[in-house]
Design a protein around this nucleic acid. Structure first.
Lengths: 347, 347
DNA sequence: GTGAAAGCGCTAACAT
DNA sequence: ATGTTAGCGCTTTCAC
């Protein structure tokens, strides 16, 4: 298929000269270079990345490592991969998918030792993710999509949860709401240590408090049935609530159903907004739900870019506070001003 | 980090013996082998895949090649990647994401010449996909997720569209419907040559005809607005229709909206079923839509498995007719028997 | 059953 | 500015 030697022979130069001409590693006379490039083109020469990597210790391959999708990935998670692959590709890198199997840590350690990778991008990062210690120990460059509890000295791209909380609250107060509730994902074994579930709850609560809104939470739900129960429970104890933010797509299905069963019109009687749901999915609900759409593609992109940046420049430390990417507010038909006579209606 | 040489030294054997012991390439005395394995374990030895690949010409790396997502990938497309990566991983292979950039064909040719890949998995295959000729010419093993117009001599995994058509029709006739319509994706520059859009239209029409149903199509839609218009147009010319199948998620939003505006109850007055939409998405509609869920993960898995199979056994030709995977019928709240007095109601 | 030696295709000193 | 020489870490003859 044509090796560098063939190119060199055809151009009447030494292999090292051909290499230099093709890579710009050292000066080559214009005429010589021309001959080499011509020979390479005629032969359809493509460098062997294995040979190159073996000696140069750089492969321009990154791995995206992710745990076994507990209950299947959603669109959001998948877009990390697409975004990261696109960014990597644009910068001349390749992205290897590295799903978790039987023994996650062992496999990751193994993979990083094979010389195949220049760095690793970690997805679905948990607050105390063990992969961080492992990669640090192995001295493998890495970056996170998401972040650990203490990401101060790490490269990471994550959602700007602070801003997300503020945006939700601002959207609602802007409409005139003075009281709201948040229905989070439940904290099971998986999500209990999963950053977004923890952070989002904290940040919305903080923003609501700061804005002087009355705030209710603790009615978490992952399924339609739980969502229905959540709204029932919520209205039983907090009948004054005029707006509710929901994290889980499925829970939102139940919330809307429960509202309808009670004769509550959305958004007339109750404003419903989603949080971290894609606009595409939010627009499938009826009414179309307002959502704060996660910047999934962008997070994937930024993660890959940061990792490559780090590879190019060893001296640079991670950006303080990482990269925080805001969500986009996409207003649907599910948010409106609260009724003036709200309390009377419910009474 | 420990090379094979280090292992050999530590075990007091030659490198070739260490290699043989680790790979089972040739008989090694039990005691010798024990020492070698022990040394490898103590050193935390991991073989260098670049060096190995350089000499053996096999890397156990596959690429998943996909065009730039026109309008963004949906969940379905993304799951091909997850499924393929999982299957590859289970069989000891790695999957490289290879998104299309500026010059798709050139890049694919380049990549296959770098010695990095054992084979390529093609996604979003078009009826006359040029990548097939290129890979055939380059003599690179490949498999398709989807298929071309003439896939007879190719390895491919695709949806069983024949069965899909039959399943849709059987579901509807089973409920008592005698007349139906299909709202396909529109055939723009992209989808006009895209297999599923073409095949699904043909197969549903054929199945309906075979079952003696009266059948209407030609009202295609990709967006909610087009979906609304499609139902309006459909009912204007075919008021007798009692059931409609829809391909596009977004179009379904419009179809449901248009039905409601006309005071048509779903499923009481009109049965609506989705085709090739995930149950997860279908369950977000209200009423929950019946759908024939595409076997996306499975297609990804089968594609990767076939490719690996092909790699292991050069002599075997592709399975005749490829692998056809059926969709799963997930019944929601949107399908029911047609009203007895249907014609009177509309009149 | 084991060892010595060659070489995969390339980059990176080191000469000239 | 160009050529020569050494490997990178491994698999694979070929001897013994």
């Amino acid at each position: 298929m044509g090796s560098l030697r063939d190119v060199a022979t055809r151009a009447n130069v030494a292999v090292s000269t051909a290499s230099a001409a093709l890579n710009g590693t050292r000066p080559v006379a214009a005429e010589t270079k021309r001959r080499i490039l011509a020979a390479a083109a005629e032969l359809g020469y493509r460098p062997n990345v294995l040979a190159r990597g073996l000696v140069s210790k750089r492969t321009r391959i990154l791995a995206l490592h992710y745990p076994a999708p507990a209950g299947g990935f959603g669109l959001t998670e998948m877009q990390f991969a697409t975004g990261a692959a696109a960014a990597a590709s644009e910068l001349g890198y390749h992205l290897l998918l590295s799903p978790e199997n039987a023994d996650p840590l062992d496999e990751l350690r193994y993979l990083t030792g094979t010389g195949l990778l220049d760095g690793v991008l970690l997805m679905e990062v948990r607050l105390d993710d063990e992969r961080v210690a492992l990669l640090t120990g192995e001295n493998v460059p890495f970056a996170l999509i998401g972040r650990t509890r203490h990401p101060e000295r790490l490269w990471f791209a994550d959602i700007d949860f602070g801003r997300l909380g503020a945006d939700v609250v601002e959207h609602l107060t802007g409409l005139g709401h003075r009281t709201m509730a948040f229905i989070n994902h439940t904290r099971d074994a998986y999500t209990g240590d999963y950053g977004p579930v923890v952070r989002i709850g904290e940040e919305i609560a903080a923003a609501a408090k700061e804005a002087g809104m009355s705030y209710a939470d603790g009615f978490d739900a992952d399924t339609a049935e739980q969502g229905r129960a959540a709204l029932d429970g919520l209205l039983a104890t907090h009948p004054e609530v005029t707006a509710v933010a929901v994290f889980s797509d499925q829970a939102a299905v139940g919330v809307l159903a429960a509202a309808e069963e009670r004769g509550l019109h959305v958004p007339g009687d109750l404003t419903v907004v989603m949080v971290l749901t894609s606009a595409q999915v939010a627009s499938m609900f009826r009414p179309r739900l307002t959502t704060l759409e996660p910047p999934s593609l962008e997070l994937g992109r930024r993660g890959a870019q940061m990792l490559i940046e780090q590879l190019a420049d060893d001296t640079a430390g991670p950006p303080p506070g990482g990269e925080l990417v805001p969500c986009r507010l996409v207003i649907g038909d599910s948010s409106a001003a609260p009724r003036e006579d709200h309390k009377e209606v419910r009474a």
